[in-house]
């Protein structure tokens, strides 16, 4: 006789992942399409349907529901529509997952409206806070001598602050808390058996099941990474600034020489590429 399931099997995790990925992915395609309204400096737009991953995080294993949703956004909302933003997406992936996981962990009894509301607003709010901090950090890193520019710091804080508030008020209430309140109690006890799972109760759901040592190590590594990037900028690390001794020792002539060689290389490469390209198209026809 096999034991009654208390933990999630590998395939159940995969089911949660796929469910969350496809649904949040689909909703993301819609939010990409819904136009935004500009009211003076304030932009009103539906950021995302965070209620979907939040509802799933509250009902199932938060970790897999959250990374499923974040993956869904990358695949449906970005890759398939040809809008993948590269590295920036990875940062959103991490922050969004963290927010959703926390939102899901806060709910022990999905039937309690209060817990669902608190979980939803704190989960989404955490995501917003984190991404606002990262956005500000980006400007701090990107602008040379950030502090030296008068008024810049204040304006950045205001712009980001306003964006944070509109997102929290519009998306946070209309598209996060209210829908989560509608969905979670309705789905509770109905959707779990479809995946062969038992509904979450205060007794069978322990935060320690989700926050495993592996999870902690992973988050520690990721925070270190984020911290490292921030540190780099503080260290006055500048790629273009290794030149003085070099120029002093060899003189400007050497640099001109380097440029000439490089230009010749570029020309030869271009010629080769054109030739190759023509051959290829010839082969095709």
């Amino acid at each position: 006789m096999l034991k009654e399931q208390a933990t999630f099997t590998q395939s159940q995790k995969m089911m949660i992942f796929i469910l969350s990925m496809s649904l949040y992915g689909l909703s993301n395609m819609f939010t990409e399409l819904i136009p935004s309204v500009q009211l003076g400096p304030i932009e009103l737009q539906i950021d995302c349907f965070a209620f979907i991953p939040l509802a799933l995080c509250m009902l199932f294993h938060p970790f897999y529901a959250a990374i499923g949703a974040a993956t869904g956004e990358i695949i449906f909302g970005e890759l398939m529509l040809g809008q993948f933003g590269g590295i920036g997406e990875i940062e959103k992936f991490i922050l969004f997952s963290v927010g959703m996981i926390v939102g899901g962990l806060l709910v022990r009894n999905p039937k309690s409206k209060a817990q669902v509301a608190v979980g939803a607003i704190l989960g989404y709010g955490l995501f917003l806070v984190l991404s606002t901090i990262v956005d500000i950090l980006k400007v701090v890193i990107g602008v040379e001598e950030f502090e030296a520019v008068p008024g810049l710091a204040e304006s950045i804080f205001i712009v980001e602050g306003v964006e944070f508030l509109t997102d929290l008020l519009l998306t946070g209430t209309l598209f996060t808390v209210l829908p989560a309140l509608y969905l979670v109690p309705r789905l509770y006890g109905k959707v779990e058996p479809l995946l062969g799972l038992k509904p979450r109760t205060a007794t069978n759901f322990r935060v320690s099941d989700v926050i495993t040592p592996k999870f902690l190590v992973m988050s520690a590594l990721l925070s270190l990474l984020a911290f490292g990037i921030a540190l780099l900028s503080e260290m006055d690390f500048n790629i273009g600034s290794w030149e003085p001794e070099f120029v002093d020792t060899y003189g400007i002539g050497v640099i001109w020489g380097v440029i000439c060689v490089a230009v010749i290389c570029v020309c030869i490469t271009l010629w080769l590429m054109m030739k190759k390209g023509r051959e290829d198209s010839h082969d095709l026809s």
Binding site: L19, F51, P179, Y182, V191, L195
Partner: peptide, 28 residues
């Protein structure tokens, strides 16, 4: 329209849950 859009995710979640079960079984 917006309430309809949000409510539509209730049936969608249930239907997709059914589907993802077969899908994962098939993967196996």
């Amino acid at each position: 329209y917006i309430t309809m859009l949000i409510k539509s995710f209730y049936p969608l979640i249930l239907n997709s849950a059914k589907r993802s079960r077969t899908t994962v079984e098939a993967l196996e």
